[in-house]
Design a protein around this nucleic acid. Structure first.
Length: 767
DNA sequence: GGGGTTAAGCTTTTT
DNA sequence: GCTTAACCCC
């Protein structure tokens, strides 16, 4: 990635060559942090440290993958024997080996926050608390307690004394222990449990000391993002050897909302007084102007290790700031500017990235990109692994692995629908409760005659479900590959048949996703040469995220992602959009969190975003923006004021991005921007948007007013291009194009009386 | 029990 | 503006 640098600089070399004892590397953005880690590990191996005695911990799979790949290039097979992984992945691995010592079965499953929420929702309902608390809120409280290392007993003990928000505390004290019991019964852990239970191992009389001297070197990346539990864990794992390497940058701490304590970086020097501290300040990524701009912003933060990035690269182009009337104009500007960068500067689309504060901002940009036929890819957002169909199929398999997994049972007992309704499930539940058995066992008992109220039809259906699970268990017992198991789950559950029968574009997508899952399982089978187990595959899926699918820069497409997802990456050209107070910085109030601290984290986020850029950085803001369907006025981000004036050029016309503007031009632009002009007729040189005649999927949303009028709907998904329809207000017409599904299906219709209009399918009736 | 309609929540950021 | 959860009717 950092291809510009050939040799290690003196500071990097010191860090790489450091022998025994604690080491803290304070590495600014783009200073070759990963490079140092990788070379340090290679150096350790060359001096005789066994690869399997080295543990390197990162925060994302992406970072772990990149590290292993680079080590593979340097060391070959030795790289495979090292422990390289995320905190959560490493903890899972330790727990699979030693978990039985703390009462955790080796086949445990990992629940994500969706699973958590389902369980909490059920518990709230059981305790008649569902009126007074949301699953989301309780989940957040449990997570926060776990980040601090507070267990259910402590949470309960805290409750009576808490004054403010004591009712919420009370709910936490009730639900938290029940939640833990529920997980234990299902042999499941949540993300935070992975860390906490690993810490339990550390406290264990036999395993604890063993783990403390298990590794000769422990190296932690992104140390500023560690929480208290993680800090204690790596401290323990390096206790025997004393060889802990922490690499981090307090200016890039952007995960405090997830429990990260950048203080850990400062505490490191206190807890390890003999630590060697090395600062990396030479940046190998960005131009000096970009660094000046980023330094200007981050310099406004109070408590920080004083660092100033510098580079041997030239000053480069000024940072550009474009003011836009609204988010659509902003997106339009970005799209046109990209056309210019590619067409006139010879940039590749893969060199370009758009960063934003929230995922919600991506939609408008996508629309414009499609309008101009710019290919793009979105990193993050709704993860593939969180899609309903994926989670459903995995729930079947988890139920096979773990018959006591009641939450999986509830998830799929009637998915796809097989005529088992609320009443039947409630009776099964009642039976399970009275006999203190799992829902699956209760369903089996009911199918064989227990619960006399149940009708024969219901029994039959329950038997059918139990047969599916039993059948899959037989497949598992017959040593089937993981991919075969997934195929069988999709088939035997009736999922495939149901989606086939539906035949809608949406059903087709879902099938394609399931096929993709099978493909991944197949890769997994190959990779493990058939020895990989279902539990291992499930773990991999559970610990995967939306962001680590596609790392680094794109090839021929523009990359769109949140700033958080962009951390650790770099792009020749970065567009940072939505630079508005309230959006970025977010300024969203959160109880118990100091406003200044929050603003400083936003500022660090701005610093991270700006330092992703290698050659060019373009900032945009919109003067009004739709938020939850409502238009809101907004003022430019205060961070824009913090950029040194001589690093910043305010622009009004995209074509000028190609040439260095004269001083006169620049001032004129600034005045134009101050006027907050919304007159974009100046763009006459830019390519005109496609006309209605050229209408196709890409231009679909553009410039066509949307009407929502009450009406009737019959079969929305059946209405497609060419269909004759009737609209409650516009009368008869012909469908030109359809997009979306169900009630949200959008139709472009040529009405004989009113011309082209976009309407929601639900307001249209087929003729 | 299933399908369809309405209502509420949501949008920070993720392992 | 969009998605999910709750509600209502067949």
């Amino acid at each position: 990635m950092h291809g510009h640098q050939v040799d290690l600089n003196p500071e990097q070399e010191r860090a790489v060559a450091h022998g025994a004892g604690p080491l803290l590397v304070l590495a600014g953005a783009g200073t070759g942090k990963t490079r140092v880690l990788v070379h340090r590990i290679a150096r350790l191996v060359s001096t005789g440290v066994a690869p399997w005695d080295i543990l390197a911990v990162t925060f994302s799979n992406k970072a772990a993958g990149e590290m292993r790949q680079r080590l593979r290039a340097l060391l070959g097979l030795a790289a495979e024997k090292m422990w390289i992984g995320t905190f959560h992945g490493t903890c899972a691995r330790l727990l699979r080996i030693h978990g039985q010592h703390i009462g955790l079965d080796a086949n445990f499953t990992i629940f994500d926050d969706d699973d958590q929420k389902r369980i909490i929702a059920a518990l709230l309902k059981d305790n008649q608390l569902d009126e007074s608390a949301t699953p989301q809120g309780v989940r957040g409280r449990i997570d926060r307690a776990k980040n601090r290392g507070v267990d259910p007993v402590e949470a309960a003990a805290d409750a009576p004394s808490a004054e403010l928000g004591s009712y919420a505390e009370e709910i936490l004290a009730t639900i938290y222990p029940l939640y833990q019991q529920r997980l234990a019964r299902e042999n499941a852990v949540d993300f935070n449990d992975l860390l906490l239970k690993a810490l339990e191992l550390a406290a264990h009389s036999q395993i604890g000391p063993e783990l403390a001297s298990r590794f000769r070197h422990v190296l932690v990346d992104e140390f500023q993002d560690t929480n208290r539990v993680q800090y204690r864990l790596v401290s323990h794992l390096s206790r025997g050897s004393g060889n802990l390497t922490a690499v981090g940058d307090d200016d890039q701490s952007i995960y405090s909302w997830r429990g990260a304590e950048p203080r850990n970086l400062i505490d490191f020097e206190r807890d390890f007084p003999d630590a060697t501290v090395i600062k990396l300040e030479q940046n190998y990524r960005s131009t000096q102007i970009i660094l000046d701009a980023a330094n200007g912003v981050i310099g406004k933060n109070r408590h920080r290790h004083d660092k100033a990035l510098w580079t041997e690269r030239g000053s480069g182009e000024p940072v550009l700031w474009e003011q836009c009337a609204d988010e659509r104009v902003e997106a339009d500007f970005i799209a046109r500017a990209m056309l210019g960068l590619v067409g006139e500067e010879g940039r590749d689309y893969g060199d370009l990235a758009v960063l934003y504060r929230t995922h919600a901002q991506s939609r408008v940009i996508e629309e414009q990109f499609r309008r101009y036929s710019i290919s793009y890819r979105i990193v993050g957002g709704v993860s593939f692994f969180q899609r309903k169909e994926i989670k459903d199929v995995l729930a079947y398999l988890r139920l096979v692995i773990q018959p006591s997994a009641d939450s999986c049972f509830e998830r799929v007992i009637n998915v796809p629908s097989r005529g088992i309704g609320k009443t039947t499930v409630e009776r099964v539940r009642a039976h399970a409760r009275s006999k203190n058995i799992s829902l699956l066992d209760a369903a089996r008992a009911c199918s064989q005659g227990a619960m006399t109220q149940l009708r024969t039809a219901a029994r039959k259906r329950l038997a059918g479900f139990v047969d599916i699970i039993d059948g899959l268990r037989d497949v598992l017992a017959a040593d089937a590959s993981v991919s075969e198991l997934i195929i069988q789950a999709v088939e035997r559950s009736g999922y495939r048949e149901r989606l086939d029968a539906e035949g809608t574009p949406d059903a087709h997508d879902r099938l394609a996703n399931l096929a993709e899952l099978v493909g991944m399982a197949s890769d997994f089978d190959d990779e493990t040469e058939g020895t990989g187990t279902l539990v291992e595959f499930d773990e991999r899926i559970s610990l995967s995220s939306a962001t680590d699918e596609s790392d680094g820069r794109g090839t021929t497409s523009v990359t769109l992602m949140t700033i958080h997802a962009a951390k650790g990456l770099e792009f020749p050209v970065v567009f940072l959009c939505g630079m508005e107070d309230g959006l970025f910085p977010s300024l969203r109030e959160r109880p118990g969190v100091d406003q200044t601290d929050m603003l400083e984290e936003e500022r660090r986020l701005a610093y991270v975003a700006m330092t992703r850029a290698q050659d060019r950085l373009i900032l945009t803001n919109a003067h009004q923006r739709r938020h939850w369907g409502q238009i809101r006025m907004s003022t430019p981000s205060r961070f824009l004021d913090e950029i040194p004036a001589n690093s910043l050029a305010v622009r009004a016309e995209p074509e000028r991005m190609i040439r260095e503007p004269s001083e006169r031009r620049r001032q004129r632009n600034r005045r134009a921007a101050d006027r907050a002009s919304s007159n974009y007729d100046e763009f006459s040189d830019a390519p005109a948007p496609p006309s209605y005649e050229e209408f196709d999927q890409r231009t679909y949303y553009d410039d066509i007013p949307e009407y929502t009028v009450d009406g009737v709907i019959r079969t929305p998904d059946g209405i497609d291009a060419g269909a004759a329809v009737n609209h409650s207000s516009f009368g008869e017409g012909t469908v030109i194009q359809a997009e979306g599904r169900g009630k949200n299906r959008k139709l472009l219709i040529d009405f004989s009386d009113y011309g082209l209009k976009t309407v929601l399918a639900r307001f249209v009736e087929r003729l």
